[in-house]
Nucleic acid binder design. Structure first.
Length: 284
DNA sequence: ATGCCTCAGCTCCTGAGA
């Protein structure tokens, strides 16, 4: 099973690149099963469902005008869909969650007694719960938007904890707008305590990890200075002045099944690229 | 420096992103 997350910074502009990238993955022999997209920047009626279906994908989407907007593209139909964080009043479209069937770990234990468990329970145990999220940017420490980011992170954690209790096989992926540590920042000294790099934000990221989640990328050796976002300005990508702010966290139950994780910088080299690159994880 | 880029929108400038 292959999952990926990509902040496309306008799906209207990036749709051809998304379809090209999905086709390239398929041509490589390992098609993407679930792709989480962020920053659609479109209302729901504008979502290009026909083009997505023509490419062989189903979709859930949750958009809004101008800003935000998220989608889950998948090869199978998602079920038990949730939009935004339950119980957290939010006028921004940031979160989409759905369950997908999988044959993961079928030769790896996970004994489920067919006599005492219903078919629905067995399916729930085998399904992978996927949360795609566009975390708030926060703009600047001390701002109203930063305060909103903190409240959103608290609400997200409360909900993810609850989801984990019902869905042990869980993936939380998206644009977190937070770096874990200095390794994730091209200039950790110059950018100390600036947005994406503050201790307050990183506290919330570690608190998510403490729920029983794992940073997929760091389960594997990576090239030095691996980033997922580069500023459009000042030749950020060419100079590799970037940050790693897009993450795929996997639950304890999924961790043993993860076989690889990488950042695919290829689409960042397109003409008119998104400022973010996709992050990809594979599970067996 | 508050801009260097890019995108959306009540579009020839502004707000926001990160």
């Amino acid at each position: 099973m292959k999952l990926a997350t990509w902040n496309v910074n306008s799906l209207s502009v990036r749709l051809p690149q998304v379809l090209d990238w999905l086709a390239a993955q398929q041509a490589s022999g390992a098609p993407v099963d679930v792709l989480a997209l962020q920053e659609l920047k479109m209302t729901d009626d504008k979502f290009p469902i026909a083009a997505v279906e023509a490419a062989g994908y189903q979709a859930q989407w949750f958009g809004q005008k101008t800003y935000n907007g998220v989608a889950l593209l998948s090869r199978t139909v998602g079920s038990d869909v949730v939009k935004n964080i339950p119980g957290f009043d939010d006028d921004m479209a940031r979160v989409l969650c759905a369950s997908y069937p999988s044959a993961l770990g079928t030769d790896n234990g996970d004994e489920i007694d067919s006599g005492t468990h219903s078919a629905a329970q067995r399916e729930a145990a085998q399904a992978v719960r996927v949360i795609g999220a566009y975390f708030p940017n926060g703009q600047e420490p001390g701002s109203d938007k930063f305060e909103y980011k903190m409240e959103w992170l608290t609400a997200l954690r409360r909900w993810v904890k609850d989801e984990l209790s019902r869905h042990p096989r869980l993936v939380l992926m998206g644009d977190y707008n937070i770096t874990f540590d200095d390794l994730d920042v091209w200039d950790p000294v110059g950018l100390r305590d600036t947005i994406h790099c503050t201790e307050e934000e990183r506290y919330h990221l570690r608190a998510l990890i403490a729920l029983g989640l794992h940073d997929s990328l760091r389960l594997f050796a990576q090239p030095p200075k691996s980033y997922s976002w580069w500023d459009y300005r000042d030749f950020g990508f060419r100079r590799n002045r970037g940050m790693r702010i897009d993450h795929i966290l996997v639950s304890n139950a999924l961790k043993p099944l993860v076989t690889g994780c990488h950042i695919d910088k290829t689409p960042r080299q397109n003409a008119r690229p998104s400022d973010h690159a996709p992050v990809v994880v594979t599970l067996a």
